[in-house]
Amino acid sequence: MKPKYSYNRQPKKIIQKSKSPPGETSPQNKAEIDLTYGRHPVLAALKSDRQINRIWVTGKLLGHGQFYPLIKEAKANGTIIDEVDSRRLSQLTQGGNHQGIAIQVAPYSYWDLTDLINRAKQTPDPVIVIADGIEDPHNLGAIIRTAEALGVQGLVIPQRRAVGVTSTVMKVAAGALENMAIARVINLNQAITKLKEAGFWIYGTTADTDKLLHETNFSGAVGLVVGSEGKGLSQLTEKNCDQLVAIPLVGKTPSLNASVATAIALYEVFRQRQF
């Protein structure tokens, strides 16, 4: 159980004000720091088991009832706390919407694929999303957020030619990352084979099929493969799918954003199960 703290204690007792913390990376090298910022994603990270290396926070937010006890606990666990002004945070985040706080989180610890599958199978008729080469961190973050909101049990991403879990992904996921199991694999098609052996039926989303999404029966354990931006599914991945499905489009736009297509497909999967 987390210790309780009085919210009216003076936050200055746990940190020292700093206009330019010694040894800090310059704002120009912000990419090297890989910051997560904004109240919602930071609050989710503070409540999780993730190791946080450093916190930059305004005095006003530091005294906030939600943040103060969590920041104090983080300091007790070895996190460096710097009270800074809003201008300094704007420099660190390169003008991002920091809302008074930014953190440097330790690198994301990916799940082993076998552990992810075993965890997923504890749920009746589990759903796992397989992202085939998503390169845009905003798309991956949006996919994670949608997947967690709809009840997906896990996500599988490749190591090569695809984005991993970065601070931008954390920001876009808006806290959902802390409740989503993600495995990063060397060979995506070997991972698909392993999912098949575990009883998952693999569906690939593509425009090149007459089988429509809403005409497909998504019962049992489902592995939903979504393709990369622009390229879609790779030929080998498409070949390894048990069934290909298409989202019917009636307008002049030929395709959808990867995260939007994933959201539509996942909604149909869970719509069938709910209603």
Rank of each mutant, 00 (worst) to 15 (best):
K4Q: 13
K12L: 12
I15Y: 15
K17T: 08
N29P: 00
A31M: 07
D34I: 04
P41I: 05
V42R: 01
V42Y: 00
V57I: 15
G59Y: 09
Y68K: 12
G78R: 08
I81P: 04
D82E: 14
E83C: 12
R88L: 07
L89M: 08
T93Q: 09
Q94P: 00
N97E: 15
Q99S: 09
I103M: 15
Y108S: 08
R119D: 13
D125G: 04
D136L: 10
P137D: 05
A142N: 08
I144D: 05
Q153I: 01
L155D: 00
I157K: 06
Q159E: 15
Q159F: 05
R160G: 04
R161N: 15
R161C: 03
S167N: 12
T168C: 07
V172I: 15
A174D: 15
L177V: 06
E178V: 09
E178I: 02
V185A: 06
T193G: 09
T193A: 14
K196F: 00
K196D: 01
W201N: 12
Y203E: 09
T205K: 02
L212H: 03
N217V: 12
S219V: 07
G227T: 10
S228V: 04
G232S: 05
Q235I: 11
T237S: 13
K239I: 07
N240W: 08
D242M: 02
A246P: 00
V250R: 14
S255M: 04
N257I: 00
S259C: 03
A263W: 01
E268W: 05
R273E: 08
